[in-house]
Design a protein around this nucleic acid. Structure first.
Lengths: 96, 96
DNA sequence: ATAGTTCATCGCAAATTTACGATTGATTTT
DNA sequence: AAAATCAATCGTAAATTTGCGATGAACTAT
């Protein structure tokens, strides 16, 4: 009784929350079809301001779903494969 | 260029958003292990106020993941199996 | 009819999210 | 060194989310 949520529920909620916006889903789709993207490539494709794209990227990064590396003067974003797999397992386990 | 998100992305985002809170994940887990629950059963188990549980139930219902039927004076909540399956397919398709 | 039960909804406050333009810092190019 | 490019961050506004206690609606039980 009065049980708090488990660690894996916290983690899954964190992933789900990050996935809970169409723009972020689109970013992830773009990153996973092409292997990686520069921020600028995403800004060209998405119908929102550059600063907003950066914010979404930050949230995806905080959730651990993507990672960025410097390729000066650009930044190259990729799927974080380790956590991607973690998320995949959590979701597939969740849906019985 | 400037492409908006697709319908299935909108739908998946809607599901993901509903899944993006530990309490709602816990509610769904409880509903799926037992086949159904009364609101009161959930309130007993969860460490939050009754009104807050009701709000979370409402969100899950709006997202289509659960459905409630009257069993007076209680309300019996169950997984919405049709949409559950839809969500399962969207997520499993998303993670390659 | 009255009292009790069950759960949704209201009203509110605090925190978070989403979006934008402007600015800044870092790096590259001229 | 100066100008240009790239992307994060700042500051702000509006909307949404999360949570609670109190109230209300619908039904049941006495």
């Amino acid at each position: 009784m009065r049980k708090k949520s488990t660690n894996s529920q916290e983690e899954m909620a964190k992933f789900a929350k990050a996935l809970g916006h169409p723009t972020r889903l689109e970013i992830l789709r773009l990153l996973s079809t092409q292997s990686c993207c520069f921020t600028g490539d995403l800004v060209e494709v998405l119908p929102i301001a550059q600063s907003t794209v950066s914010q979404h990227l930050k949230e995806l990064k905080n959730a651990g779903l993507i990672q960025g590396e410097i390729d000066a003067p650009k930044i190259k974003y990729c799927i974080n494969k380790e956590n991607w797999e973690k998320a995949r397992l959590l979701f597939s386990g969740f849906f019985d």
